[in-house]
Computed example of a mutant assay.
Amino acid sequence: MTSTGTTTVGRLSTGALAVTRHLLVHGPATRGDLGDHLQLSAASMSRLARALVEEGIVTERTTPEPGVGRPRQVLSVVPGARHVIGCKLTEDKAYGVVCNMLGEIKTSATVALPDHPAGAEVPVAATVKVLTQLVTRLRRKVPSLDGIGVSLGGVVLDGSVVHEGTFLGWRDVDLAGHLSERTGVPVVVTNDVTALAREQLWFGAGRTHTTFGIITVGAGLGFGVVREGVVVDQLIDNGHLLAHSPVDPRGPRCQLGHPGCVAAYLNRTDIERRAATTLDDLTRRRTAGDERATTLLDEAARALGHLAATFAGALQTDRIVLAGEDIAAIAGSPAMNEVITDRLRPGPQETQRCTLDISVAPLTFEDWAQGAAVAGIQSVLGAP
């Protein structure tokens, strides 16, 4: 159950969720088209439509049928039927947004997390207090609040417990339980790239592909997997195997000592250590024609090209989303496309041809928070 102000709202039934999801992903549709697509009888479709209209989740309007025929009944989602707060946690800040059913950001705010010594655990109780204050501030902007989604780097269990908080220093912290108790609103906690995968499933790549992968490049490397329309909530290795796959045995070593692995070329700290400057400065130097800066960023772009091609092959998908704060600086190089083109080149006796649909999406922390909100929306509606 979820709480909306003082009103209790139940999760949707399987059929109602299927109808709502289709309308959210693909837009307005007639009862007939929905029934055909979801393999529902006319009677079942009518019952579900009536229930969703009564619930206030969808609206129905009658439009005349061109020519001779009965008027069409078109269903559309009511954007303001649900509101969810999404929070993205870094090691020192919490970025919050309020989103409606369509994942649209209505308002946002940012707060600092409690002070702590470098490398030390961020105080849990004080963090929950700060997040509660952020929620209180944001919920004033909407008539009601149905849920909260929180995303962070690390491993999360059962949508609640931060088993391993990479940047917060947390171990086995029941963040959802603590925050829900303080706010009186259901909370779902998720890995930040998994939240982004959920957002892409409904409002991005998932509109055209049921299986796709996400690679994020920023403070660290992140991976998201959507397989046959289902988000993989927990990777078996948190992306470790892909992040440390070898590229060049003669290349630089990553922080774990692997020579020439993907992480050695793409982790921001490794790039900046080798360049003896910041990534932003390195990008500016490349623009100014600096050969050393161009070489370092081209090496990173080639590693990213190998990673994207390998990930696509492992998932057997032609859709990969590249995202993150640092992605524009690295994926913007022609070197990445050259690697992918070479990896796709067929042998002389091969007849099968493959292409990759790769998109590049630089992210702000507000975008990360939006992903957390969409994870919250899906949880409120009862989506897996």
Rank of each mutant, 00 (worst) to 15 (best):
80 G>H: 04
114 P>K: 10
166 T>I: 10
143 P>M: 07
189 V>Y: 11
189 V>E: 13
197 A>E: 05
161 V>M: 09
80 G>Q: 05
149 G>E: 09
156 V>M: 07
191 N>V: 07
173 V>M: 03
174 D>T: 00
107 T>K: 06
138 L>A: 05
157 L>D: 15
180 S>I: 08
194 T>K: 12
86 G>M: 00
143 P>C: 08
135 V>D: 08
160 S>C: 12
156 V>K: 08
93 K>F: 08
170 W>P: 03
155 V>N: 12
91 E>W: 11
182 R>D: 14
141 K>S: 13
189 V>S: 10
142 V>T: 05
81 A>N: 04
169 G>A: 06
165 G>P: 04
94 A>C: 10
109 A>C: 11
88 K>S: 15
161 V>A: 12
152 L>N: 08
116 H>W: 03
143 P>E: 06
102 L>F: 09
102 L>C: 10
96 G>S: 06
146 D>I: 02
153 G>R: 04
151 S>P: 11
162 V>M: 12
205 A>M: 04
176 A>E: 04
147 G>I: 08
196 L>N: 04
79 P>V: 03
106 K>T: 11
119 G>N: 11
175 L>V: 12
115 D>R: 13
82 R>S: 09
102 L>N: 13
130 V>P: 04
108 S>P: 00
150 V>A: 03
164 E>K: 12
130 V>R: 14
87 C>W: 01
188 V>K: 03
141 K>I: 00
144 S>C: 10
104 E>D: 15
97 V>G: 01
153 G>M: 05
146 D>T: 07
117 P>A: 12
165 G>V: 09
200 Q>M: 06
205 A>C: 05
185 V>I: 15
162 V>N: 07
116 H>C: 11
151 S>D: 15
